[in-house]
């Protein structure tokens, strides 16, 4: 019983991070229709920049802020300098370009910040908190709390603010939105900034638990994408549900069945979702199915 509870807790924290990665995917998928292969690299970059700044004796809060800003800058620059120059920005062309940007981001991090794994201390120490017989790493609370906050904030942003509504309008009908005076390119840049910022934040909050290094991004990105798929591509609450479901499923399978095949669980879940319920748990609307 205790083991299951511990597994559920670790699943909850990794699931929260998957949820944040999935959120970034969804935001960009909605605005461009492309798969953002760089999302995982942005998460890794966030963790690496924060860890490097912290190692240079910056205060923790400043290191995290600096990481988020740096990654947002990278994303905005790639959007402005590269993606905007594509002559025919079809979903496929953008997806291929995102692969190239992911390769560049990864190698830049490797060249500038080194190949060694980097670490951050827990935001409030690493003394486990005792709660009924469970020893919980305090970082778990930070991860779950920040994820909930970010989810609520994005929800509020897209539902209540003018800017968020404008972005949804562009996602739904770019031409009509342009006729109403919304600049579609501005919406695209904004979605890149948002996705990168959320991704970088996810990278910094998970680093105290798992360490990070330049080659962690790719797998994290794909697991986040599985989470987005599981919850329903393009649905924001779906990202949260998909992420947490994937995290707990993975932790339970890894702990109770076999730790060897833990990594396959996410992808088996992805395939089953696609084959049985391609709209995901919360997704609705048209899925292109023959």
């Amino acid at each position: 019983m205790e083991q299951v509870a511990n597994l559920l807790l670790s699943g909850l924290s990794s699931g929260s991070v998957y949820a944040l990665v999935a959120l970034g995917f969804n935001v960009i998928f909605k605005s461009t229709g492309a798969i953002n292969f760089a999302q995982g690299e942005w998460v890794m970059m966030g963790g690496m920049v924060a860890a490097t700044s912290y190692a240079a004796h910056w205060p923790l809060g400043l290191a995290i802020l600096c990481a988020v800003l740096a990654v947002v800058m990278v994303a905005l620059l790639s959007e402005r300098l590269i993606l905007r120059r594509i002559k025919k920005p079809t979903a496929l062309a953008v997806t291929l370009m995102m692969i190239a940007i992911a390769i560049c981001s990864k190698s830049l991090v490797m060249l500038l910040l080194g190949k060694n794994p980097a670490n951050l201390p827990g935001f409030s120490g690493s003394e486990p908190v005792l709660w009924f017989n469970l020893r919980i790493h305090p970082q778990t609370f930070w991860i779950v709390g920040i994820t909930c906050l970010v989810m609520l904030a994005t929800h509020w942003f897209f539902e209540r603010t003018v800017l968020g509504r404008a972005m949804r309008a562009v996602a739904a009908q770019p031409e009509a939105a342009a006729l109403c005076g919304i600049e579609p390119r501005m919406a695209m840049a904004l979605s890149f900034g948002l996705a990168a910022g959320v991704g970088a934040l996810a990278g910094t909050i998970i680093t105290p638990l798992t360490l990070t290094s330049f080659d962690h991004g790719t797998v994290l990105g794909f697991k986040g994408f599985s989470a987005a798929m599981l919850g329903g591509l393009g649905s924001l609450p779906g990202a949260l549900i998909g992420g947490v479901a994937l995290g707990t499923l993975e932790a339970l399978a890894g702990g109770l069945i076999s730790s060897h095949f833990k990594d396959a669980v996410a992808f088996v879940a992805l395939l089953l979702t696609l084959f049985l319920r391609p709209t995901g748990i919360l997704g609705r609307g048209a899925v292109e199915k023959v």
Partner: peptide, 27 residues
């Protein structure tokens, strides 16, 4: 099952299959 999907959904399904094969190769 996978070729009934289109576009990004097909891409992700095939990617997932590749990832599962990779895990099998190394485990």
């Amino acid at each position: 099952p996978a070729l009934r999907l289109r576009g990004d959904y097909l891409a992700m399904a095939t990617l997932g299959f590749n990832a599962i094969l990779s895990v099998l190769f190394s485990e």
